[in-house]
Design a protein around this nucleic acid. Structure first.
Ligand SMILES: Nc1ncnc2c1ncn2[C@@H]1O[C@H](COP(=O)(O)OP(=O)(O)OP(=O)(O)O)[C@@H](O)[C@H]1O
Length: 751
DNA sequence: CCAATTACCCACATG
DNA sequence: GGGTAATTGG
């Protein structure tokens, strides 16, 4: 025992060792960037277990599923698989979703409840707004969803909202007096749908713990030791959950860095960490200030930036690592030039000691990824985008998932509406509206209403009723099959029976082909999931479990083959907690980073600065910062100014290069980048995993050629005019007659 | 009811 | 420039 202790404590410095050794009582670790807080948490859990604490009694809450997975596998490499599996570890959302499924019946749900994502919520809110006949300009679904979400994150129920005059008044002032009514209807509809949104996973957990003392007692006993990572980004609901669970034993350890609090937009409250000392008795506070990740130049640059913030806990982050290279800052004529420069840099550096995996490109807004992508693709550099529209949010995937969700939970309103007429079965908006009205009048779920449509006198035609019955029968068959089949088999059956792939194959566009491939990828994902689950003895590898997993998954949770080598692209927010040898931060421009929306308040601007700090401190060796003097926005060229944040980096730590000099550009690369731009912007199928170029299509045809066009079908070329780039062809199509087409745009195949 | 066309948002970040 | 909701003509 003693020898074991020695061996793992050797990996820690003195400051890290102290919080690890503290077993009982409340403690807080304030850790600078790269100072090893993940390491402290990992070793602390190991230390707890080595000291006889049952892994079943440890609850560790992380910020991402990936962080939990990595920590778990690190722990199991230290103490073995058997014990580490029993730790409750995951994000707040995934851990409490599990608990809510156990306790669902207590709060009026079944254990098969569906988890609504942001899109589902927005669609539901949108239909509620329509049903209430509210003005669609003052009641924009997105705005309302955000408002409701932030209410829920502050643990304000519908009733609490109505009895708080500050809240109701402020919504009246912003010309949205019906916000509360929408909130109420939205909540009711979620319950009726046996569904919860992301915020409910926390809100309902609080309700459960508050209203059922025996449940609270049970989980207080269960989780005698609680650890929370990234505590600076917890919101009020999360704070309350931790507080009630830890209240009895007070064995709570929170870890965080106030300088990295960047999620206030989803309710995170930096005061949770700042006031932690006051929440428990005799809080032990530890500080970690030695950075092990980055070079001196990087650490110093980060410090000089964060120095500009007023609201912070004082820290002195330092490192023993080498000075390394100065930070390179580059000014570029355009976003396209900026992107090209990154490709060039990567191609240069990859020759030496780097893999593609050593590079990340970070940006403020997901929309910036497109230009970077185009450039990387053009240089044949493999890349992967994280965030934005994630795999499981793609239309074709959500369509399939909607069928599965409906099979598991008939009351899932949004899934039903999504697929009741996809693929088309002749059930239109009029029919659906009648059903919604019928479901309200009879207080039934939509599915139940359709099921008994014949007897309810909803004013539907006989042919409509037949179509509805066929739909219901199909779902009922799936339900019966689902009892016998695995998640993989039922999905396969759904895809075959609904003929969704046939529907997609109707047109042969690269988009559709990619969609079919994505569906195949989904099936592979389910297979992998089942394989993983097999290891867990009492798991039934059923559909419900898979769906729950999917709802809480992000791009980071999709299994990668270890051999894959690619450059990562992600938002600065997504990069929290990660590290890369070489980091590019792009778009350091006023109004973009810092965002124009942050100028109103010091708090918002300081959060932008923290975001920059997070970005800088992701880098181990090299940091490249760049901006463009012009940029495309909504297809229009706008001019941009250098970001104020660049001035805030101490001059001693930077190397500045101006890439605006046209002669330099020309020397570096021929043909001139300005000619290539046009071509680069074409053929963008961004959201699709497998990107096919336009090269399948012909730009050289001759008079008399028989050709096939994607939309217009077969035809014959009867005349050509114009030169090189702008050849126009007159084509006689069999179906629609003569058409003039520009060859560079037309998707033609010569037959 | 459906497919094609038009209009209108949008891009601040996420589990 | 791109996705989705609304509109229109068949
Ligand atoms: N005592 C140590 N000796 C050597 N390397 C260490 C030590 N502690 C941590 N490291 C290394 O420093 C790096 C940063 O550690 P870690 O990711 O735990 O930091 P962090 O505090 O979570 O960072 P951040 O808050 O910036 O995400 C890792 O590569 C880790 O392996």
């Amino acid at each position: 025992m003693i020898e074991d202790k020695q061996s793992y404590l050797n990996d820690l410095n003195e400051a890290q060792e102290k919080p690890v050794l503290k077993i009982n009582g409340p403690s807080m670790v304030i850790a600078g960037a790269g100072s090893g807080k993940t390491r402290v948490l990992t070793y602390k859990i190991v230390h707890l277990i080595k000291n006889g604490i049952d892994p079943f009694e440890i609850l560790a809450l992380t910020f991402t599923n990936k962080a939990a997975r990595e920590m778990k596998s690190r722990i199991s490499s230290m103490i073995g698989d058997g014990e580490s599996k029993n730790i409750w570890m995951g994000t707040f959302h995934s851990v409490f979703a599990k608990i809510l499924r156990f306790e669902a019946h207590k709060i009026g749900f079944t254990s098969d409840f569906t988890i609504y994502d942001v899109q589902d919520s927005e669609r539901l809110i949108s239909s509620i707004i329509k049903e209430m006949n509210l003005d669609k300009d003052s009641y924009r679904p997105k705005t309302i969803r955000n408002r409701i979400s932030s209410l829920k994150n502050s643990f304000i129920s519908v009733n609490a909202y109505f009895s708080n005059s500050d809240l109701t008044e402020s919504d009246k002032l912003s010309k949205r007096p019906k916000t509360g009514d929408i909130y109420k209807e939205y909540s009711d509809r979620l319950v009726k749908s046996n569904s919860m949104d992301f915020d409910d996973l926390l809100l309902k957990t609080n309700e459960l713990l508050n209203n059922f003392p025996e449940v609270l007692a049970k989980y207080q006993e269960k989780f005698k030791y609680i650890l929370v990572d990234e505590y600076q980004d917890t919101n009020n609901s999360q704070y309350l959950i931790v507080k009630s669970l830890a209240d009895k034993y007070q064995n709570i350890c929170v870890v965080g860095d106030d300088a990295q609090s960047i999620y206030s937009f989803r309710g995170a409250n930096i005061n949770n960490i700042i006031n932690f000392r006051n929440d428990y008795d005799d809080v032990e506070v530890y500080r970690l200030e030695q950075n092990y990740r980055s070079t001196k130049y990087i650490v110093n640059a980060a410090n000089s930036v964060i120095d500009n913030n007023k609201n912070k806990i004082h820290k002195e982050v330092w490192t023993d690592n080498e000075f390394g290279d100065k930070i390179q800052i580059t000014a570029n004529p355009s976003d396209i030039a900026e992107a090209r420069l990154i490709s060039q840099k990567i191609l240069n550096l990859i020759k030496s000691e780097n893999n593609y995996k050593d590079f990340v490109v970070l940006y403020r807004t997901n929309a910036q990824s497109r230009v970077i992508e185009d450039s990387l693709r053009n240089s044949n550099i493999p890349y992967k985008i994280y965030g934005g529209v994630s795999f499981y949010n793609r239309k074709e995937i959500k369509d399939i998932l909607a069928y599965l969700r409906l099979v598991v939970n008939n009351n899932d309103e949004e899934s039903l509406k999504r697929i009741i007429n996809y693929p088309p079965r002749g059930i239109g908006q009029v029919t659906i509206n009648k059903i919604i009205i019928g479901s309200k009048n009879n207080n039934l779920s939509i599915y139940e209403t359709i099921k008994s449509a014949k007897n309810l006198n909803l004013g539907l035609s006989n042919s409509s009723i037949t179509k509805l019955e066929n739909f219901i029968n199909q779902i009922e068959v799936f339900k019966i099959q689902n009892k016998k089949l695995s998640a993989f088999e039922i999905t396969d059956l759904v895809i075959k029976e609904t003929k969704i792939i046939d529907e997609l194959r109707k047109d042969e566009s690269p988009e559709s082909i990619a969609r079919v491939e994505n569906i195949q990828e989904l099936l592979n994902g389910i297979r992998d999931f089942i394989d993983d689950q097999k290891e867990i003895a009492d798991s039934k590898n059923n559909l419900s479990e898979f769906l729950s997993n999917v709802s809480l998954a992000t791009d980071f949770d999709i299994d990668l083959k270890l051999s894959e080598d690619f450059v990562s692209l992600m938002s600065l927010h997504s990069s929290k907690g990660l590290e890369f040898k070489n980091v590019f931060i792009v778009g350091l421009e006023e109004d973009l980073f810092p965002s124009a929306l942050s100028y109103n308040s010091r708090d918002d601007l300081e959060e932008e600065r923290r975001l920059f700090y997070v970005g800088i401190t992701r880098a181990k060796k090299n940091l490249y910062i760049s901006y463009a003097n012009s940029r495309y926005r909504w297809g229009k060229l706008i001019s941009c100014e250098e970001s104020r944040f660049i001035d805030e980096i101490d001059n001693d730590f930077i190397d500045f290069k101006d890439n605006n000099d046209f002669s330099v550009l020309q020397k570096k690369s021929k043909p001139s980048p300005f000619i290539k731009q046009k071509i680069l912007r074409k053929g963008n199928f961004r959201h699709l995993s497998s990107v096919k170029s336009n090269s399948d299509f012909q730009t050289k045809v001759s008079v008399g050629d028989k050709v096939q066009h994607l939309k217009f079908g077969k035809g014959q070329v009867i005349r050509l005019e114009g030169d090189n780039d702008n050849v126009k062809a007159k084509i006689k199509f069999e179906k629609i007659g003569d058409k003039n087409l520009l060859l560079k745009f037309a998707k033609l195949k010569v037959l």
